[in-house]
């Protein structure tokens, strides 16, 4: 038995990047079709849920409210080399969500990522554009409450910097558009 080949195939099965075929030994074929493999993947999913619920709370809650959490997390797990060092997981996840096709998810993730950087000592200044009024949204996400149905639209910016009170400030560039 070749340990390297054995481990590479199991990695591929766990990450869904390898399809077992006729040329694989009986063990790899057995794992590939086992319910255990599905549950192992579910287990990975649950561990990520536990960590990100704590470390990327705003974005996590928004994805949950929009029923997009499972899809976003599955894609993240499949595409990223997730370190066992827990504190590295949220920045990687927030980076990924910062380019989400849903503009609000992207804005919340960009804000949360910038805020976490600044709170860990980053001296940079960040500006995140929003097209809805952020106060109500952020309040709901922080408390894991339902989002307001009709958040006022407009052009807003959240500035994030170490020298601001609470490390951020919301600026209205263009108030509610009717």
């Amino acid at each position: 038995m070749d340990i390297a080949a054995h481990q590479r195939k199991l990695l591929g099965l766990i990450r869904s990047t390898y399809q077992a075929g006729d040329s694989d030994d009986a063990y790899i074929q057995r794992v590939a079709t086992s319910k255990d493999l599905e549950e192992a993947q579910r287990n990975i999913f649950l561990w990520r849920i536990y960590v990100l619920e704590r470390t990327a709370r705003l974005t996590f809650n928004l994805l949950k409210r929009r029923n997009l959490l499972e899809a976003a997390l599955s894609s993240f797990i499949e595409r990223h080399n997730i370190s066992p060092f827990r504190e590295t997981q949220a920045p990687a996840f927030l980076e990924e969500m910062s380019s989400h096709s849903d503009g609000l998810i992207a804005a919340v993730a960009q804000f949360e990522l910038a805020l976490s950087k600044v709170r860990e000592g980053d001296m940079g200044r960040y500006a995140v554009q929003w097209n809805v009024e952020p106060h109500g949204i952020l309040n709901s996400l922080a408390k894991d409450l339902p989002l307001e149905e009709d958040a006022p639209e407009g052009i807003y910016q959240i500035l994030v910097s170490y020298d601001l009170p609470h490390q951020f400030r919301i600026v209205t560039l263009l108030p509610e558009v009717h």
Binding site: M1, H6, Q7, R8, L11, I14, R15, I44, I77, N81
Partner: peptide, 20 residues
Amino acid sequence: YTKVDGEHLGIMLAMPKTEE
């Protein structure tokens, strides 16, 4: 083991119980 060729499994797998 939790990684293979530097790629993290996201979970821990048991060793194959071989002599090697």
